[in-house]
Design a protein around this nucleic acid. Structure first.
Lengths: 327, 327
DNA sequence: AGTCAATATGTGAACGATAACAAGTCAGAA
DNA sequence: TTCTGACTTGTTATCGTTCACATATTGACT
């Protein structure tokens, strides 16, 4: 920077101002500095900048996984919006594990992030402590907790699962099974199951053991599971999966096994990923406003940093029941 | 840090050493400092650290998109490996546009990244200049250029497309069409097309205009395109798509339109995403070693930073032709 | 002409850590 | 006993930028 200053015949302070508050300089000086800036190809040192200003232009975002178009859609929007505002996204992947979240958080706090974005509202004691002492705004995504840590943006996973279950009932299905990746730490997963159970109870349909299926991972093995399912007595006529990945796996597994969807077994998902509308038969699912969640999160972060935010501490982006061919 | 030092009755230098080179301290002092560290919940300031040491623990990675399991698989591996080594991943999304890449790069260079990871080997003049002056190792992913900027890890897109085209011919298909997202900036896209053309030429099959299809985006509209395709005269019997996303779109579009795959039209993809083996019929495709690319990239970055790397400047991770049901 | 406010630029300290070097301690060898 | 070198800890300067304040310049108003 002193090179630039020398070339323009000013001090570093003036160069610094040219970079951040150009309107505070006389047109003539600004011109000279801009020229020198261009000529030297100067790149400001953010480390020095954040050291002295006591805050960085870094926003930390921790997601359970990025290999899932539900989350990556949100990440993409977030990253784009933040970089438009001059902020950079430091990304971590927690694998749905709050202790990994804590470990990553510990590693990231050293950057003195301007803001943090987390998924869910279950965090370890130590994580909360780090968030406390950082003083930075924290946005929790993907559900609407009763007591957000700071601000939360999401949807009611409970209500969405409840509504979908009721909708399946409304379409004539009775023995509705529920399939889930079982993560007890995962509040979204827990809420969806609770919503399903609440609906079944309200409908007066007993949930037997074989109607709640916990699967270990992904879409690969769903075929076998679905084949067992249709053989159950009394007959199960619908399968509600807590994620689209699971639902597509089940659906394609069914097709492959010659099970007619929805005639032999209706299938519903959760997420409305792009694939959901493309598969044959197209998947009935819960639409999750993933782009909107990212947009809102970015907006709130920016407004919190400017001190202009005065919205509610919980923002419900809602959801939609999308009926397609599979149910 | 001075708090910690005071509490432990030492200087900040000793605390700094406890953090980075604990073996250089006496067990007694280390114990005291560790205790103080724990008690205060001290978090080192990375900005100060990188300012004085002239290099950060940040690795910048720029990907065309993250909403694609091919790339997100690599990102996930990368992020995990780097954070194990104490490095953090600053992620950017270029939208397949080298000028966006340049803009992001300009914004990121201020962090004085320890290393940079880019996709492809086409970059703007200004980008190259920034890379030059950074002095950091640069790893280019996803293809194997003749003249890598520094080190490249990938596969021969040309050869892979060539082999797949030959394989389709070997399986009895003759009039093989090629579908592509047209990005002239994208060397992977260009290489795959060239590989296809080279194979067709070697096979002595004329590539007519309607056999090279450029589509604007994604999987949504592929259905209509496929329907037109099978009506073409003389008949087209196979469709090779330059990405799995495209191929799955085409395949499901075909299924929906009642076109039998592979009897009426064979379909092949490129990427071997998880979905490829799940769709019905399962997709014949080119396996891309996406996890391996991420792992190798992380390894090379680390070895370059330690100064221990002495491997080749181009690493070919190879590819595989995976025959499934669709061709 | 003299005062004042507004505008434009400069000065010096500070941010929190580490590099390079200095200095103290101690055991064992000459 | 004295010297040597290994080991441990401390001292000082420094990284590149911005903050808070000081100073210079200008024009307008009394």
């Amino acid at each position: 920077m002193s090179d630039v200053a020398k070339m323009a015949g000013v001090t570093t302070m003036t160069v610094s101002r040219a970079l951040r508050t150009p309107e505070a300089l006389s047109p003539y000086t600004l011109e000279k500095v801009t020229e020198a800036l261009r000529e030297t190809g100067f790149v400001p040192n953010y480390a020095a900048r954040s050291l002295v200003s006591q805050r960085s232009q870094i926003v930390v975002a921790l997601f359970p996984t990025i290999m899932n178009s539900v989350f990556s859609g949100t990440i993409e929007v977030l990253s784009r919006q933040l970089s438009e505002q001059g902020y950079n996204l430091l990304l971590g992947e927690t694998s749905f594990d709050v202790t990994v979240e804590e470990k990553l958080l510990r590693g990231f706090m050293g950057w003195r992030p301007a803001a943090l974005i987390l998924v869910g509202s279950v965090h370890t004691e130590a994580s909360r402590h780090m968030l406390d002492s950082s003083g930075a705004p924290v946005v929790e995504l993907w559900n609407i907790p009763k007591e957000p840590y700071d601000v939360a943006v999401g949807l009611s996973n409970h209500d969405a699962a409840f509504e979908m279950t009721m909708a399946l009932h409304g379409w004539g299905y009775r023995r509705i099974a529920f399939m889930n990746l079982h993560y007890p730490q995962n509040d979204r997963s827990v809420d969806r199951r609770a919503g399903y159970r609440a609906a079944m109870q309200e409908l007066g349909i007993e949930v037997t053991l074989e109607m709640e299926i916990d699967v270990p991972f992904g879409m690969e093995r769903s075929g076998a599971i679905v084949r067992d399912l249709v053989k159950a007595q009394p007959r199960i006529d619908a399968l509600f999966c807590a994620s689209d990945t699971l639902a597509v796996g089940a659906l394609l597994g069914a097709v492959r096994a010659g099970i007619r969807v929805p005639d032999d077994l209706a299938i519903a998902g959760f997420g409305d990923v792009e694939l959901a509308s493309t598969v044959v038969p197209a998947l009935t699912t819960v639409r999750v406003p993933r782009a909107e969640i990212g947009r809102e999160a970015a907006r709130i972060v920016m407004e919190r940093l400017n001190g202009t935010y005065d919205g509610p501490s919980v923002i419900d982006c809602g959801f939609g029941i999308i009926r397609r061919e599979s149910a």
